[in-house]
Design a protein around this nucleic acid. Structure first.
Lengths: 124, 124, 124, 124
DNA sequence: GTGGTCTAGACCACA
DNA sequence: GTGGTCTAGACCACA
């Protein structure tokens, strides 16, 4: 896994796992890969992975069963809520930045559209 | 100035100054506030501000005049280019994230619109 | 059985069994449930239950009869002593904590009384 | 500092610091000892101390200023709330245990009184 | 100097 | 095997 060296690795791992859960790659109630396996998967240290998991445990997005492993929460509502939060955070971040660059709402939307189009072309 | 403690402060200061320049609060060729003044403005240490400025000098977005201080570049093209880069980076970041959360282009746009509306209401 | 994940499970099982014995749910001389049954009752692994029992055997609160199983001691004095010890330990723990929080004896008693009252109300 | 090996050290350190804050040994807004100093004081590893502090930071009982140190919150309400929580938790723990040992409310109170008296005598 | 992050490695409780 | 905890030690950003 490529890490951005501007933000803590444990934070990026957390984000990565959030995505796995929110997109259903990790289903509600499913067993997470072991800490050791995750460390290999994302090429980070076991403790760094553990730190990400510890935060997710305290948020109750995952639950731990001693000796058995960690499991995705079965509470689909809180997964849904997590998804909404991630979407909103991202939109808010982008909006504030572009707004601070003096773009109006309309300009933001049109920039977004042309960005999408340019991507489409690149992928054709 | 409020800092996000997840990313380096010097980086956030750099971003702040980029915005000042791109939005014309700091005009092309205009003298920058002194390092000391900036440190007070953004409530950071002089060393940290200096680090931000050093990087901007090497990018030639600002230029140093011995004994006189730092000045915004007079090259309006590179300012324009900086602006475009900031906009694109931000869009790209948001797009990748939301795409990774399985949102289609249409959903991203509609989420963005409802986000803008909810902001409008909050500010009325 | 709900476990506090801050203290070892075998320790909590031991405590649970102490309570059964001291309150007479398990009578002096009575046969203990089998290790397997206990493991089911408290939802823990057999090894973990065994560890709790091993310690209780060495304390002679329970005795093992080859091929027959484990039995509660018939020595009522030592059961009585165990009870006193549990009560005292608990009081001592609480007292030290609240004292360390600068509560006087009187305040501890009055806090205790209001705690009991608030429980009464909640249970009516 | 003597540690109870039944509960995590970081947890006991957290509790120790809670007490310092609640009893006013560490005043609201006061600078905490440095992480390194605390590690020496309580004879634990820097990381273990850091773990205790990280949790306290996320609870906003202390706040961190990059490069300057950690400081006790200035929000006296949340300190008061912490104190109440600590008292209640302790009372609840003791109450449940003694109740589970079949002691009535009256017996709990009288046991507590005799415990206090026996301590008085020991200290005279 | 001060806190924050990360790593390698060890040991323990539990299944 | 699996997670949780702890340590020693290193390096970085910031004041």
């Amino acid at each position: 896994m490529k890490f951005d060296d501007k933000v803590p690795i444990y934070f990026q791992i957390k984000n990565y796992l959030y995505h796995q859960i929110v997109t259903g790659i990790l289903q509600p109630g499913e067993k997470m890969p072991s800490v050791r396996q995750l460390a290999i998967d994302v090429t980070a240290n076991v403790n760094t992975v553990q730190r990400a998991l510890t935060e997710m445990l305290s948020e109750e997005i995952i639950v731990s069963q001693r000796g058995k492993g960690n499991f995705v929460t079965t509470d689909v509502d809180s997964i849904q809520q997590l998804r909404n939060q991630l979407v909103e955070e991202q939109l808010s971040l982008m909006y504030k930045e572009l707004h601070a660059l003096n773009l109006t709402d309309e300009e933001i939307l049109s920039e977004m559209k042309s960005y999408m189009e340019s991507r489409d072309e690149a992928h054709e």
